[in-house]
Every structure is written in C-alpha cells, then in structure tokens.
C-alpha cells in the first residue's frame, strides 16, 4: 500500500514540476545554464545565429530585427555575461533572470548623469553597462564572480 501511495505521490510531484516548467517561462539567463538561452531566443522571437568557441568560453548569438544578443558561456556551461546591440535594448528582466531585483534596486540608486550618453549600474554581484546611439544602442551585463579565469571583462561585448 505504501509503495503505491509513494508512487502516486511521485506522479503528482512530477506533474507539478512539468506543469510549472511550461506554465512559467524559465527566466534566464545570467548565472543560468546555457540551456536557458533557448528560452531567451523564444522570448525575443529571435533566431539562433550560431555558436562561436573561444579559448576560455563560447559565445551564442541570437538575432531578431530588434537587436542581436550574445551570451557568453563558461567551460562549466554557465552564462557569465551577455552583450547586445541594436535598435532597441532587449528585455533586461529576461536576460538577468534572478538578478533582476538586485539590478532594479541598484538602478534606483544610480545617480543620473545628464548629458553623458552612457550608464553603469553596479550592485554587489552584477554590473550592467549601456552606451551607443540611436539605431545602435549597445550594452552588456556580467557577473564578475562567474567570469572564467584568464578572461578579460572587455571580451564581453
């Protein structure tokens, strides 16, 4: 009897996990495994443009008419940085995943630098930077603690 009950419970739990996976989009990507890039691609209605291996990381590029997003993946398969450029910036909540609250708090405390056409938002775990101009707005977000050793921050672009 107990065996059957546990089996039933397992099925119920499995159902809930599967239900949640489809009902709530996986909020990728920073800090998440590379598999989360696919949820970004769907959320942005973007297409995969390809994966480029570098010495210490891999870059996955996804493209939509709005912008191109490049996701930097460590050898252990975790997204440690994202960079973008295009007509409009990508949805930052989709890109930052669980870092979004920390980012919004840091953004509120970032003084406005009128006249200087760039922005740098820094929190304890995360840095988000923007620059560029109309028709080519650019930016990047990265978690310094996740950057693989030997990789220069300026390679995230």
């Amino acid at each position: 009897m107990i065996k059957i009950k546990l089996f039933g419970l397992f099925h119920v739990l499995a159902f809930f996990v599967i239900f949640l996976a489809y009902a709530v989009p996986v909020m990728a990507t920073l800090g998440e495994p590379a598999s989360s890039i696919e949820s970004d691609r769907k959320a942005f209605s973007a297409v995969n443009r390809g994966t480029t291996p570098f010495k210490s990381y891999t870059v996955h590029e996804i493209y939509s008419p709005a912008n191109t997003v490049r996701e930097f993946v460590s050898p252990s398969g975790i997204v440690f940085g994202v960079a973008w450029n295009g007509l409009v910036p990508p949805d930052i909540a989709q890109l930052l995943g669980s870092y979004i609250t920390e980012y919004k708090n840091a953004l509120q405390h970032t003084p406005r630098q009128k006249g200087s056409r760039h922005q740098r938002v820094k929190s304890s775990a995360l840095i988000v930077e923007r620059w560029g101009h109309m028709r080519n707005l650019q930016g990047r977000a990265y978690v310094p603690a996740l950057i693989p050793s030997g990789v220069n921050i300026d390679e995230i672009r």
């Binding site: 200087s116 930077e129 560029g132 650019q138 990047r140 300026d154």
Partner: peptide, 8 residues
C-alpha cells in the same frame, strides 16, 4: 571612460 564601451 564610463565603461569599456566596446568598439566605440
């Protein structure tokens, strides 16, 4: 120099 600014 607000940031690396890519190639800008």
């Amino acid at each position: 120099s607000p940031n690396a600014g890519g190639n800008v």
